[in-house]
């Protein structure tokens, strides 16, 4: 055996086997940031840039117009009805699905998810067909002073359809993971059904519930396609904030359109902030897919 090494030791930096070279790493990071800038950050910036084109005062003035005010009120009203109803549905569905074993469960879960794969426009169409002027039910309702289509009930129904899966989808995996043992323990200790739910289940799912409600609310306030179809877009009566944006935009009232859009964009940013805060703070109490 000679002393001359067959393989020269190269003074190159060691890179662990599970990493990429620094050049590759930073190129990929750069590429991702570039694409996100072009696709996400630039549009977000554009909203505020366009809204403030003529200054704060002008932008804020556009919000205090009667039509804008009524749109804001309607959007808040629709969210205030839709979100609690869907939260109630989500809790009931998650309870029935995770606490009991029954036939047809898989089908019900599929149906709950159905709105995710249906066009918002088709969702609007569904309620036009059911309650519109061309249906017997719709004519009867109009005759009795309770119009659904081109009125608030239709907007609520269409919004409910679009946001239907949000709370249930969030609660089901969390409650499945938590199992039934704690509820069973409470029952053996003599707690009633309601008491068990309020004192054992609800505290365990509160952050997941809030998470679902947050996403449900963001979507409910921002829904456009489904509401556009059922609302009839009557100014000052059935025009929600997203519809108002379209109206302003088509009337070339750019600042008014982008100011209203800015308000909704702020809502989106608040939603994202709260959502991220939940993910960081209460990751263990959310569905596994939201944990980072």
């Amino acid at each position: 055996m000679t002393d001359t090494p067959a393989i020269p030791a190269r003074p190159r930096p060691f890179r662990p086997a599970t990493t990429e070279p620094a050049l590759v790493k930073w190129s990929l990071i750069g590429l991702c940031l570039a694409v996100l800038t072009v696709l996400l950050f630039a549009p977000l910036y554009a909203v505020f840039d366009e809204a403030l084109r003529r200054g704060w005062a002008f932008a804020l003035a556009s919000l205090s117009e009667p039509d804008a005010q009524s749109a804001i009120r309607l959007t808040l009203l629709v969210a205030a009805i839709t979100v609690p109803l869907n939260a109630a549905f989500g809790i009931a569905a998650a309870w029935a699905i995770t606490k009991f074993d029954w036939r047809g469960k898989a089908w019900v879960i599929t149906f709950i998810d159905l709105p995710f794969s249906i066009s918002p426009v088709v969702a609007g169409l569904l309620f036009i067909l059911m309650f519109g002027a061309n249906s017997a039910l719709g004519m009867w309702l109009v005759a009795n002073g309770l119009p659904v289509v081109f009125a608030v009930p239709g907007i609520v129904l269409a919004t409910m359809f679009i946001t239907f899966p949000f709370v249930a989808r969030e609660l089901i995996p969390v409650m499945l993971e938590q199992g039934r043992a704690e509820e069973e323990a409470a029952l053996t200790l003599g707690a009633s059904g309601w008491r068990t739910f309020l004192t054992v289940t609800l505290p365990n799912i509160r952050w997941a519930l809030l998470y679902g409600v947050l996403l449900c609310n963001a979507r409910a306030m921002g829904e456009f396609g489904a509401v556009a179809v059922v609302s009839g877009k009557i100014r000052g009566q059935t025009t929600t904030m997203p519809l108002m944006i379209e109206m302003f935009y088509n009337e070339y009232l750019s600042v008014a359109a982008f100011t209203m859009a800015g308000v909704l964009a702020l809502l989106a940013l608040v939603t994202l902030t709260l959502k991220s805060a939940l993910e960081w703070r209460y990751a263990d109490q959310l569905a596994a897919t939201h944990r980072h």
Binding site: C32, L36, P43, F224, P242, A268
Partner: peptide, 22 residues
């Protein structure tokens, strides 16, 4: 960046529409 990935979930489509157009 991680939080911003969900922006399309949270931003109303009409807002995205006029912003992208702009």
């Amino acid at each position: 960046v991680d939080a911003a990935v969900d922006l399309p979930f949270a931003l109303p489509t009409a807002v995205a529409g006029i912003a992208l157009t702009a």
